[in-house]
Design a protein around this nucleic acid. Structure first.
Length: 232
DNA sequence: TCGTGTTTCGTTAAAGGCGA
DNA sequence: TCGCCTTTAACGAAACACGA
């Protein structure tokens, strides 16, 4: 189906009930979907009761569509300023994804280790602090960022971004740089070609992003670099 | 009402497959 | 072998839930 040709796996879930909701406004749709999913039968492995959580462990969330577990940590020292609906400026914590796992307990252990590094042994953990004596010794050798990176590397989900540029990847056959952009031309993934250098591929991505998403598109290089081409 | 933690979903990278 | 397309799953951020 065309909905499944896009990258979003969520659109591939076959549910006649949810399919009916496609005419609703996004916010309403989300609320409705949540309501429906929350009230699926108890024997459904994916569903949770309205008040239950997706995992029994702290800092661990099960991805509804993929079934994998993600470990999340909030960095209280890195604040993000945003504006709320009334124009008042509010601050939110920055959420850090520590890793993605097939195993719930492994995700919980990873959350604990990250929490120990960030907030110390007094913080609330999933397992007792005695469980991590070895790891606590080990983590002193690293900065927060370094330790987090090592946890991510250990996760089964770690693999992203050989290229430092957005929209650029190594071609699996010839090793050339391939440029692509998603969700354009009627929800399809658009192939932009292969290039000898990362920079060329990155520029191709930028041009496509500007063309399809306008001047507010996120680009690899400054948008002014493309002013001449855009004028044409 | 606010702050913190959880959930959901859109976007993107990687990899596989197929045809020229 | 190369170019192109599709699928899968990770990443990132916004929205939401809930307790203080």
């Amino acid at each position: 189906s065309s909905s499944c040709s896009s990258s979003s796996s969520s659109s591939c879930i076959e549910s006649p009930i949810l399919a009916k909701e496609q005419n609703l406004k996004p916010k309403r749709l989300r609320a409705r979907r949540k309501h429906l999913l929350d009230h699926l039968p108890a024997d459904n492995s994916v569903a949770t009761s309205p008040k239950s959580r997706s995992s029994i462990y702290r800092g661990v969330t099960r991805h509804r569509w993929t079934g994998r577990y993600e470990a999340h940590l909030w960095d209280k020292s890195t604040w993000n300023s945003i504006q709320n609906k009334r124009g008042k400026q509010i601050k939110i914590n920055v959420m850090i994804i520590v890793g993605a796992y097939d195993n719930e307990e492994e995700a919980a252990r990873t959350y604990d280790l990250a929490a120990l590094k960030y907030w110390g042994p007094t913080t609330l953990l999933n397992f007792s602090v005695e469980t991590y004596v070895k790891e606590i010794e080990e983590m002193h050798k690293f900065t927060k960022e370094e330790y987090l990176a090592s946890l991510r590397r250990r996760s089964s989900g770690f693999s992203r971004g050989i290229s430092k540029y957005r929209g650029v990847a190594r071609h699996h056959h010839n090793g050339r740089w391939e440029a692509r952009i998603g969700r354009v031309c009627g929800n399809k993934y658009l192939y932009l070609g292969t290039y000898g250098t990362e920079e060329e591929a990155a520029a191709a991505y930028d041009m496509a992003a500007i063309e399809y998403r306008g001047t507010n598109a996120v680009t690899n290089f400054d948008i002014s670099n493309y002013a001449d081409k855009l004028n044409k």
